[in-house]
Structure formats: structure tokens, C-alpha cells
Simulated scan of single mutants.
Amino acid sequence: MTDHATPNLPSRDFDATARFYAALGFEPTWKDGGWMILTRGALKLEFFPYPDLDPATSSFGCCLRLDDADAFHAVCKAAGVPERSGGLPRVQAPALEHSGLRIGYLLDPDGTLVRLVQNPA
């Protein structure tokens, strides 16, 4: 197995989190009362319970390094995630940033910022 990392993110409700990410193509591979793992191909997100989390003040985040960030953005839109400047959840299309990377943004219902980073060609 190659080295890898998996983000550990908060969930106020595992069932609600699983439903949201299922619409984006993630499937549960582990779930018990204290941990949940969702996968989509090589992507893996791990969640811990945080029932008292205030999504409006959450500072949790992670990056998904994607071969096609535009396609993932399209999946989010097709799943009904709105593209807007406020509210949760929401998505923003990938765009070229000062870093030279194309990055989009997804905020999930728990306020977690998921950066959609385009892998270099």
C-alpha cells in the first residue's frame, strides 16, 4: 500500500452525513457509534461524532486532490448542492487561484470546507 492520509471530519449525525455524501458518489465502508468511513474510488473521508458542532463556526476542512475537479463539481450540482455565496451546503466551481492551482469549494451541511483541488496534468 502506498502512503496516504485520510481526513478526519466532524459529523453531527452520521446518517445525514452519509446521505449527503452518497449523493456525491461516496459509499460507507465502516460505521459504528464512534466512527464512519466513506469512500468514492480512491477518495476516503473519515468522520467522528460531533453532535454539538455549530456549522456556522466550524473551522474543519480538507482537500480532495482530483484528476477532474470540474467533473466532481458537476456531480455536486447534479446532486442538488446549490452554487451560492452563503448558506450550507454550497459549492463553488473550480477557478485558477494565485497559487497557480485550480480550486473549487464544497461546504457540507456540517460546515466542513472541502477544497476541490485539480491535480496537475
Rank of each mutant, 00 (worst) to 15 (best):
P82F: 04
C62K: 05
L64V: 03
L38R: 09
T112Q: 02
S59V: 13
T17V: 02
V114K: 02
G25N: 09
T57F: 05
P7D: 00
T39S: 06
V117L: 06
A18Q: 14
G61E: 08
S99N: 06
A121M: 08
P49G: 09
N119Q: 11
A93T: 14
M36W: 02
D70P: 02
G100Y: 05
L45T: 01
A93P: 10
P28I: 01
F20I: 00
A56T: 12
S85Y: 08
A95K: 09
P55Q: 07
N119C: 12
D110C: 08
E46T: 04
D68F: 10
R19C: 00
K77N: 03
L101S: 03
K44F: 01
F14Q: 00
P94W: 10
F48G: 10
D70V: 01
D32H: 02
G25M: 06
L116P: 03
G104C: 10
A5K: 06
C63P: 00
P51F: 07
H73Q: 07
F48L: 04
H4T: 02
S85D: 13
T112I: 06
M36R: 04
S59R: 13
C76W: 03
G25L: 07
R84S: 14
D52S: 13
A78H: 07
E46A: 15
P7H: 01
A69Y: 04
D70L: 07
L107F: 12
R12S: 05
A95L: 12
G34N: 11
A18T: 08
V81M: 10
W30I: 12
E83M: 13
A74R: 15
F14V: 02
Q92A: 14
L113K: 15
A93D: 12
M36Q: 14
A22K: 09
L106P: 08
F20N: 02
A42T: 14
S11A: 15
L96D: 10
R12H: 00
H4Y: 15
T29L: 11
C62N: 06
I103N: 05
L24W: 03
L38S: 04
A121N: 10
Q118M: 14
D32I: 01
R40M: 06
A22P: 05
F14C: 02
D3R: 03
F48Q: 02
D108C: 04
I37Q: 14
A93W: 04
A42M: 08
W35D: 13
W35R: 14
A78E: 15
D68H: 12
A95C: 04
E83C: 08
M1G: 15
A74F: 05
P51C: 10
R12W: 00
T39R: 09
D3C: 03
F26T: 02
Y105F: 12
Y50L: 12
F60A: 15
W30Q: 11
D54P: 10
F14N: 00
F14H: 04
Y50C: 06
F20A: 03
D54R: 12
A121V: 11
A23F: 00
T6Q: 09
